[in-house]
Amino acid sequence: MTSSLEQRYRRLLTLLPASYRRRWEDDMVRTFLECVGAEEDTEDAAYLRDHGRPDRGEVLSVLALATRLRLGGVGAEPRSRLRGDAIRAVALLGLLFHAVTAAVEIGVMPWLAGDFLPLPTPPTEPVFDLPGAPWRLAFNPLGLFAIAAFVALAVNQPRPARWLAAVPLVADWVARTYEAMFLPGGTPPTTWLIVLVNTGLVLALVAFHREAPPVRTRTWIRAFVAGVLLSPLYVIGMWTLPVEQELRFAALDWPGLCALSVSAAGIAYLVLRASAVARAAHWPLTLLFLGLAALALRGVSVADYVLRDGASAAVTAVCAAEAAILLVVCAPLAILAQRATRELSVDPADVPG
């Protein structure tokens, strides 16, 4: 007869992939019951069988194993490795995006403050964050944590990267909660969605477990340098495009920049996918994940502009065009991602015996 403790442990093991459980579940259950002494013929063992639960250490051990198996560890199915590679690439690209934008924000601070005399006087800056100099002084240096988190991950130090990435995320949650509670109008839905997307990005760092493949340091550091070198194009576009300021800020705000960046990356992949780098099976799924997040941000931001700010028809049209382009790019990526997933099958040699 199955005891309550065994039932609870088997429920915990449902976190593991089905193929792994079919091979190892009975052995794991037997080992667990022996280790806790539940199979002994004593009064304490009988009480444990009826009322016991897996302790915290065992739960964490199973969670860690499930993460490694479902996100590309040793013994993982090919589809799990595909998911793991895609999530790791999402985390790297997301941190790269944050690191580059943080470098841009830090770099233009002297100019926006009017302290960099060789350049012309900056135009009026849109107010996106909390009001007041103390908040600006507190939040601008947080960009250094984003840069440090990306560099740590790029040099294969995922544990420090998680802590570094969590600092600006926690600060963002505090700031948005303050806005929602004390500022007129509260926090726009787009801002909350950005915070949630960033939260998902930090959680994606769990995919860098000890059995994950190493990050190609040179490739990602070069990508960061290239992004910083290309960033003046964004600054020039934000401040000097010959269109109304409202239209520039709407088209190149955070959701717009995400939509344009992912669209450009998706188009580049579709054009160059025959190359050696782009042939990696996880790239369509990676770009699809990013595309869906960017599409949600752009869609909610359009609703914000129309319902909260009474945006003009031109602003609505530009934002809708960005969303439409992204949707067109995501369609073939979804087909390629589904094809790559369908072509993978379980290789028995990959399951430890």
Rank of each mutant, 00 (worst) to 15 (best):
Y178D: 08
F150D: 09
A146Y: 09
V174D: 08
P158E: 03
V167P: 00
L144W: 08
P168A: 00
I147E: 02
A166T: 14
A161S: 15
P158H: 05
A175V: 01
A171H: 10
V155T: 14
T177Y: 13
L153T: 14
T177R: 11
A161T: 00
R162D: 05
L169G: 06
V151T: 11
L169D: 08
A146P: 00
R162E: 06
N156D: 15
R159S: 13
R159G: 07
L144N: 00
L144F: 13
L169P: 05
R176Y: 13
R176W: 11
Y178W: 15
V151W: 07
L153R: 14
Y178H: 14
R176C: 01
W173N: 00
V174F: 15
P168D: 03
A166V: 03
A148Y: 05
V170T: 10
D172W: 08
P168K: 07
R176K: 12
L144K: 02
V174I: 15
F145K: 03
I147V: 15
A161I: 02
L169M: 10
I147L: 14
F145P: 05
W163C: 01
V170C: 06
E179K: 12
T177M: 10
N156E: 08
A165W: 06
E179W: 08
A161M: 00
L144T: 10
Q157K: 14
V167Q: 02
A152R: 07
L164M: 12
N156C: 05
V151P: 06
V167E: 02
N156Y: 10
E179L: 05
Q157M: 11
V155H: 07
A171M: 12
R159N: 09
A165P: 05
L169A: 08
P160V: 01
A165Q: 05
A149V: 09
A146D: 13
A166Y: 04
V155G: 00
V151D: 07
F150L: 12
L144A: 13
P168C: 03
A149E: 03
A146H: 11
P168I: 04
A154T: 12
A146W: 09
E179C: 05
